[in-house]
Design a protein around this nucleic acid. Structure first.
Lengths: 257, 257
DNA sequence: CCCATAAGTTAGACGAAACTAACTTTTGGA
DNA sequence: TCCAAAAGTTAGTTTCGTCTAACTTATGGG
């Protein structure tokens, strides 16, 4: 009994897991009420879901107690979140979709996307921002393209003009001042392209294992109050680095949108 | 009674509609058995679904009879199919995903995507193929990028080399021979960028209403046995044109992948 | 033209996921 | 410290979409 089924989770259960993950991240424990509010369901539905998730060995839960995720639960939730963020970020950064709309659509689509496609989506967004042929500013062309609701011949003309202006600005600002700096120097929201990793050991291996190499894009998501640790995102994976570790990673700042 | 509810359709019902649409397109009528086979459900489930869809006024259906779509049903199914194709084509053409996998994922994701995002996705795919700054061949860079499983520094180098070779080839072939030709000259699978529309009248207006202007990409999907009519796709919409009408639309061929 | 088989239907059951209504437990402010 | 409100649970219901099993209808080859 309490046979932990190995069947795929339903979309609904994935959403519960994801919500709990986010609540635990922010408040260390999740309360039934908050899960219900976020998912716009009744409290009794949450109780039911928690029982199912407990049977599956994904949450730590006792009646009337707080909720946390088991190790397996955390692993599953992270995967769901990665899919969610890959979609949302693509919609926002590449397709210039309004963040709220992007997030809602990502939430509905995240359950049907495959691993392969997630990885390609992430790679593509990265490629768009860093490909040396088109350059990071190229994607701005699409932004301008979208802003022009009148999709006439002029729009395209204007797109080119604005693209060229962006490139010119980069030149004026002096692109050559864009030296490699330690990852620890980046502020939250900033992105950098990995130039190299000094030192070695566990962190370097952990990063390597995710398919991250020189040229990959890293984003500093947030920095804890004391400036340590840093929450960074590479290839869609969230990663917590000590400032000291981050200092060993050389990056070249990429100016996003 | 038989109150035609206005509630949104469930993902499941959308799939039934889409399947019926495709069967009707290919065989003029849909049979229960074929619907069941395509959706991998039992025949009895199809009967149930047909009853629901009939109540909603979306299908023409009598017990033991063939199934067709009502006008409303056709309209809804077309929208679903447009979402499906927008996703699938993006996965295949832009992300270089295997067609089968792309199709399956599109089928699962098509129910959660919003109108806005579909349009952006279509615009983006078009932008990638036609933006004068990066050029149609730019996307090849990503293809090469993906082929290189070893994601090392060399991969990027090779991507540039291959991109440049493509561009050089275009030059050699003589890009200037790419004159504007009538849309009716394109073969199935070929794409062209609209240069202008001669004549006027209903077709021109119908096309205009879809947000299609000079510069938009048209794809000839298939041509009926007698060469008339042509099934073309613009902005994700399928459109049936008489050869005569297509002859009035001038396009510049775009060499895809 | 007849009947075996394929196609379609009906009835009934089931599981998932939500709900309402009534309950129990927890908690924090007077 | 006590008790009212908030949070959580339980029981029972509903809806949806599937299934199986048993049936009815349609159809085409001998």
């Amino acid at each position: 009994m309490t046979a932990i089924t190995t069947d795929a989770l339903s979309a609904s259960m994935e959403n519960y897991l994801e919500t709990i993950f986010l609540l635990v991240r922010d408040y260390t424990v999740a309360r039934s009420k908050d899960i219900a509010d976020r998912l716009k369901v009744k409290r009794s539905s949450v109780t039911g879901a928690l029982q199912t998730l407990k049977e599956r060995g994904l949450v730590n839960y006792e009646p009337y107690g707080y909720v946390t995720l088991t190790e397996t639960g955390t692993a599953v939730a992270s995967k769901v979140l990665r899919r969610h963020e890959a979609l949302r970020d693509f919609f926002v950064n590449v397709l210039s979709i309004d963040p709220t709309e992007a997030d809602e659509a990502a939430c509905r689509m995240e359950h049907g996307i495959s691993k392969n496609i997630v990885n390609r989506l992430l790679d593509f967004a990265e490629f768009v921002e860093t490909c040396p042929r088109a350059g990071a500013k190229w994607i701005h062309g699409f932004g301008y393209h979208c802003q022009d609701h009148a999709q006439d011949a002029d729009a395209c003309e204007r797109c080119i003009t604005l693209c060229l202006r962006d490139v010119a600005q980069d030149k004026t600002k002096g692109m050559e001042t864009n030296m490699a700096i330690p990852l620890s120097e980046l502020k939250p929201g900033e992105k950098g392209q990995i130039e190299g990793m000094a030192g070695g050991g566990a962190v370097k291996r952990r990063i390597r294992d995710m398919g991250v190499t020189s040229g990959s894009l890293v984003e500093v998501v947030r920095v804890a109050p004391m400036g340590d640790p840093l929450d960074v995102k590479v290839k869609g994976y969230h990663l917590s680095l000590r400032r000291e570790e981050a200092a060993d990673i050389q990056v070249r700042k990429v100016t996003g949108h």
